[in-house]
Simulated scan of single mutants.
Amino acid sequence: MPSIRRGSERGQVSLGWLQSLHTFSFGHYYDPEHMGFSVLRVINDDTVAPGMGFDTHGHRDMEIVSYVLQGALEHKDSKGNHHIIPAGEVQLMSAGTGIAHSEYNYFATEPTRFLQIWIRPGAKGLSPGYAQACIKQNGALTPLVTPDGKGDSLMIHQDASLYRLQLSAGDTITLNTHNRWGYLHLIEGAAQTTQTQLDSGDAMGLTAQESVTLTAKSPLEALWFELPPG
């Protein structure tokens, strides 16, 4: 049976300049029952105060996706990349053998909100890389990150795919895992399944040969991950 992770039960971090909700254990939030799902390691819902951000810090052997929901992020890294990521765009940074970067709210007068997503790579010691794109919605499910770059998506070093799901109120969709695992994270809106109602911030994990049928109760935006069996 699919497992439910309620948004209200996520770890909460308040640093003044940063308000963050952690779906899985991260930083000072530790929960042995929520250490990740398959190769999905982190989903942080971060809101950064105007002009503030994350000072330069390092990563290695991790695929890091940032999906900006409001405002804009300013990214700088040790490989010479310097980019602005506005709302609606997706960024993929492959940390590989090691990369240092900083992320700041580009705006001085409004907050920036983004989802920070970590996925374990298929191999260690890869060359670091950077990509970002504005990917227009095409149907209910639009690929944002995939292993092969289908549909102009960003290419990840893992047998995992990330889709943006958008539904209008009353629309219905069935998500199937087949021989893979799936993870659904609601960003905004609400949906009814045969078992329960899902609201903003709620998530559902599915293992092989499971499915879920969603009916949107309001305009809905969510992320759907297709993952290797864990």
Results as ranks from 00 to 15, higher is better:
Leu126Asp: 07
Phe37Ser: 05
Lys136His: 11
Thr142Ile: 03
Thr109Trp: 15
His22Asp: 08
Ile84Ser: 13
Thr109Asn: 13
Glu110Ala: 13
Gly98Thr: 11
Gly53Gln: 03
Met1Pro: 11
Leu154Ser: 02
Leu227Glu: 04
Phe107Pro: 00
Glu110Pro: 00
Ile156Gly: 01
Met62Asn: 01
Leu167Cys: 02
Asn44Ala: 13
Gly139Pro: 13
Gln137Asn: 14
Tyr104His: 14
Gly125Trp: 09
Asp171Cys: 02
Ser200Gln: 12
Ala95Val: 00
Tyr163Pro: 03
Gln116Tyr: 10
Gln137Arg: 09
Thr109Tyr: 06
Leu175Arg: 01
Pro2Glu: 03
Pro32Cys: 05
Leu141Ser: 07
Thr23Ser: 09
Arg120Ala: 13
Phe54Asp: 07
Pro50Gly: 07
Glu210Arg: 10
Gly189Met: 02
Tyr29Met: 06
Asn179Tyr: 02
Glu63Leu: 07
Ser218Phe: 05
Thr177Phe: 06
Ala95Met: 02
Leu214Ile: 15
His57Gly: 03
Val42Asn: 00
Arg113Cys: 04
Val13Ala: 10
Gly151Ala: 06
Gln166Met: 13
Leu115Trp: 12
Asp77Tyr: 03
Asn81Asp: 10
His185Leu: 08
His75Ser: 09
Gln91Met: 13
His101Ser: 06
Tyr104Lys: 10
Ile43Gly: 00
Ser25Thr: 08
Val68Ser: 01
Met204Ser: 13
Lys76Met: 07
Asp61Tyr: 02
His178Thr: 12
Gly11Cys: 15
Gly170Val: 12
Ile119Leu: 09
Leu15Ser: 11
Asn138Gln: 15
Asn138Ser: 14
Phe114Pro: 00
Val212Trp: 04
Met35Leu: 14
Glu110Ser: 13
Val212Cys: 11
Cys134Val: 11
Leu154Gly: 01
Met35Ala: 09
His59Val: 03
Tyr67Asn: 02
Ala190Glu: 14
Asn138His: 15
Thr47Pro: 01
Lys217Arg: 15
Trp181Asp: 12
Glu221Asn: 10
Glu63Asn: 05
Tyr106His: 14
Gly230Asn: 10
